[in-house]
Design a protein around this nucleic acid. Sequence first.
DNA 1: TTGCTTATGATACATTCGTATGAATAGTGT
DNA 2: ACACTATTCATACGAATGTATCATAAGCAA
Lengths: 217, 217
Amino acid sequence: MKKRRKQKAAVKRRPGLASRERLLDAAEKLFARYGFNGVSVRQIVHAAKVNLGAVPYHFGTKEELFKAVIYRRALPLRVEREARLQRLAEGGKKPSLEELLWALLEPAFRASRENESFRRLLGRASTDPTPEVRKLMAEIYSTEFMVVPKELRKANANLADDVFYWRLNCFYGVMLFVLADTGKIQTIAGKGFDTSRPEVALKYVIPFLAAGFRAEV
Amino acid sequence: MKKRRKQKAAVKRRPGLASRERLLDAAEKLFARYGFNGVSVRQIVHAAKVNLGAVPYHFGTKEELFKAVIYRRALPLRVEREARLQRLAEGGKKPSLEELLWALLEPAFRASRENESFRRLLGRASTDPTPEVRKLMAEIYSTEFMVVPKELRKANANLADDVFYWRLNCFYGVMLFVLADTGKIQTIAGKGFDTSRPEVALKYVIPFLAAGFRAEV
DNA sequence: TTGCTTATGATACATTCGTATGAATAGTGT
DNA sequence: ACACTATTCATACGAATGTATCATAAGCAA
């Protein structure tokens, strides 16, 4: 592997920053819609109105561009999530399962207010079968999102291991599918059914999940 | 679009049938693992030990090959599912939610006994963002799998529309994620945690779903 | 201005992609 | 044996892919 260009201070300069940012925005939107393998670098630079050479220059490879798209928002997401958990812990008494779920889910869902694409991208990339994407997402979950299973385990300390992990599996299924927002329910319920608004989604999803975790064994 | 070859009786002959079948098997395995866009036709023919020209000959296009892979098992799946629903209806009294969920889910999960790939393919293709795949899956669900939401609606007649459809959304999230079997839980719970055996999966998943549907509003 | 670093642009490269073609082979009914 | 059809094979085609190259432009420090 040949060394990329020296780019120690690639972020310090201001002028051309617009180009890099537009690239990230366009890539986020397209990756969210069509997946990593479903979009070409040329489609991205065209949508971003940026030259083709900007991708090797700013990111090196398509895969690095994808990583940059994810990390740009994954880090703030973790910070936000942990702030909420912190606030919950400060309350003194043990939070309810519903409160915990809210703290864990709301930041990711709320990402849809400022930027609808990232919410979908997060949901879809988490189940993307492409090896490079899988590797990256495993890395993200083990570094940024590890707090999710850990906190849920604490809140469900009464459950046996096998039961808990299966319910955690179900939890991820619901979370990722609702984040991904594939539109499946619209094709059943009709186009008037809106699944994109985060506070509405949480209102319905959290009771479902809480009841699932509390089910009799 | 140019007309494909005449292939009215493409299935009648026996000899070369092995080639077509091997192609379907290899494609099923690879599509399940890497997604539609993550596999090339050349990888498929290589895995199937078949000549490249066999794909245009037997299927025309890659997309048609994918459709053939899905339909080969989707049709028997529907038949099996409806047989179970029939048996349930013959019982006379109204079946429990758990019994209904069992009838709806078991055939798809059981597909993993004979053929583990199709179960994963079904789960993953249902959330694949590729437009061609989405179109096909929408078609499949509206023709083969429409009975699922219909039966669930009957069993949850007490729920308001919005509540029901959100819970159906959660249901699909769980079902598809567990079918897809992406291995996420193994990375958390350790490699010893087995999610591939259908009867085990159902034992844990059905109580979770039933409790979710029954949750207080 | 001059000098230097960073960014953009047009273009080229080697691969790989899906699909098409037509000759060679194998199987079947007569 | 024959003719005929179904299948397999090697190969070719143009388009699209990710990445690299290098000349030019732009911003800033001196």
